[in-house]
Every structure is written in structure tokens, then in C-alpha cells.
Amino acid sequence: MQFSHSDAMWQTFPELRAGGLHAEGIHAAADVEASVVSFSSTAAARLAEAPEGEFPEIQAWRRGFSRMGLKPTQYRCASEALLRRFRQEQALPRLHPLVDLCNAISLAFAIPIAVFDTEKIAGDLEVRRAVGDENYLTFGGENEHPELGEVIFADGEGRAHARRWTNRQSGLSAVRETTRSVLIVAEALHASASEDVGRLVATVADALAQHWPVAPKTAMLTSVSPRFEFQA
């Protein structure tokens, strides 16, 4: 399997830095609570100094959403949505150990992290503009068609596994109790994105190895090296 961004995406967003991680051996019995609390504490300390809208990581995504023709306060990147909810409620709901862990790391880094069940992805996964006939399954079970030109995560059968780039994932490839193989993607657009995404990917890999019997494969993606290949 291969994960990549289209050439057009790199041309439009040359500042993009992305990291990929693949792991097999995930299960729903891991106890990640201590790690979640630790990463959440990092986010809480930062939010005590300034709201998430002032973070350079979030401001960069807001500018990116504006360039996509989206109102950034209507459609937020996943990390901003998480930070906003965490600031208001002081906690996030617990969903699955892996999702909880990645959400907490996303809070700590203010960078969106997507987690996909690779068994639900057909062929390769590419971040690209929609042609308008792709299918997107909501978490409520409804089928939608992304708008023409919308940035999506598209697989080989034309199914969209995320809409509006880092705004919302699909219910189709969401992590569940039966999930065993995952692709984790982190993307950023801010000035220090290369360094920060590298640290984030290493942090996720270390955390996974602590809680599951996995040996994650990782990669950093750039316009020069835009593809992450792995066995799934």
C-alpha cells in the first residue's frame, strides 16, 4: 500500500510537511490513560498561556483553509477542533486506546493526526482534489459526495476517507475494536513544520511501541520524497 499527496497538492502547498506511520498488531485492550494525561497536560499548559487560535500551527491551517476557499472558523482542522473542545471541557471523550492516544498527542503538538484502519482502504490512499463522484461515509452512516475540487483522502475505488483535507475523517475507515492494522498521518503547514512533524512521528512511534506489540514503520514526506510505501 502507498500513501501520498498529489503533485498538484505539493505545488499549491509547498510549505506542507507530512509524516506517515504504519503499524500492525493494534488491539483495544491497551491502557494508555497515563500517556493521555501526560500529553493532555502539555496542551493544557500551552492553552493557559494563549488560546488555540493564536498558535502558529493553527494559524497556518486557517490560512490553508482560506486558500481552499473555506471559511476557517466554519471548517476547522482536526487539531484546532480538538484543542477547542479540550479548552472548553478540560477533557476529550474516550473512544479507543489508539484514537485517545493520537488525539492527546495531537493536542500536545497542535498538529492534526489522522488514523485509518488500512483494511478498509482499497488500494493506495492519496490526498488530492475531488472530481465530484467520490463517496464519503459519515459516522452516522450517511453517504455524501465531496464537492468538485475539495481536498480529500481518496483510495483506489474513489472512496473519500477524509473531507476538507484535515477537517473530518470518514466513518468507513475509523478505528474500531476489530482494527489491527493502521496508517497514521500527520500534516502541518507552519514555519517549523518539518522539525515538529518529525518529532511528532517519533513520539507516536515510541508511544505505540510502549503500549502495543508493534514495530512501526515511519516516513517523512516532502515534494522530493512524496510517497510512503508499506505492507498492509
Rank of each mutant, 00 (worst) to 15 (best):
A23I: 02
A23K: 01
E24D: 04
E24L: 00
E24F: 00
E24P: 00
E24T: 03
G25W: 00
G25M: 01
G25N: 01
G25Q: 00
G25S: 00
G25V: 00
G25C: 00
G25E: 01
G25T: 00
I26M: 06
I26F: 01
I26E: 01
A28N: 07
A28D: 10
A28P: 05
A28K: 02
A28G: 06
A29C: 00
A29N: 01
A29R: 01
A30M: 11
A30F: 09
A30S: 12
D31G: 06
D31E: 10
D31H: 06
D31T: 09
D31R: 09
D31C: 08
V32Y: 11
V32C: 14
V32W: 11
V32I: 13
E33K: 13
E33S: 15
E33F: 05
E33Q: 14
A34D: 14
A34E: 14
A34V: 14
A34M: 13
S35D: 15
S35K: 14
S35T: 15
S35N: 13
S35Y: 09
S35R: 13
V36C: 12
V36W: 07
V36Y: 08
V36H: 08
V37S: 04
V37C: 02
V37F: 03
S38M: 15
S38D: 15
S38W: 14
S38C: 13
S38N: 13
F39Q: 13
F39T: 11
F39P: 07
S40N: 05
S40E: 11
S40Y: 03
S40I: 07
S41V: 06
S41G: 14
S41M: 12
S41K: 11
S41N: 15
S41I: 08
S41F: 12
T42Y: 06
T42N: 08
A43D: 11
A43K: 10
A43C: 15
A43T: 12
A43S: 14
A43Q: 13
A44K: 10
A44P: 03
A44Q: 08
A44M: 04
A44E: 09
A44L: 07
A45R: 07
A45C: 05
A45Y: 02
A45H: 06
A45D: 10
R46I: 10
R46D: 07
R46H: 10
R46C: 06
L47Y: 04
L47R: 04
L47N: 07
A48L: 06
A48Y: 05
A48S: 11
A48D: 08
E49M: 04
E49S: 05
E49N: 04
E49H: 04
E49K: 08
E49C: 03
E49T: 04
E49L: 08
A50E: 06
A50K: 05
A50N: 02
P51D: 11
P51N: 06
P51V: 06
P51W: 04
E52H: 12
E52L: 08
E52M: 11
E52G: 10
G53N: 03
G53D: 04
G53A: 03
G53S: 03
E54T: 08
E54H: 08
E54Y: 04
E54P: 02
F55T: 05
F55N: 07
P56L: 12
P56A: 12
E57Y: 12
E57D: 15
E57R: 15
E57F: 11
E57H: 15
E57K: 14
I58Y: 10
I58T: 11
I58F: 09
Q59D: 09
Q59V: 14
Q59Y: 05
Q59R: 15
Q59H: 07
Q59W: 08
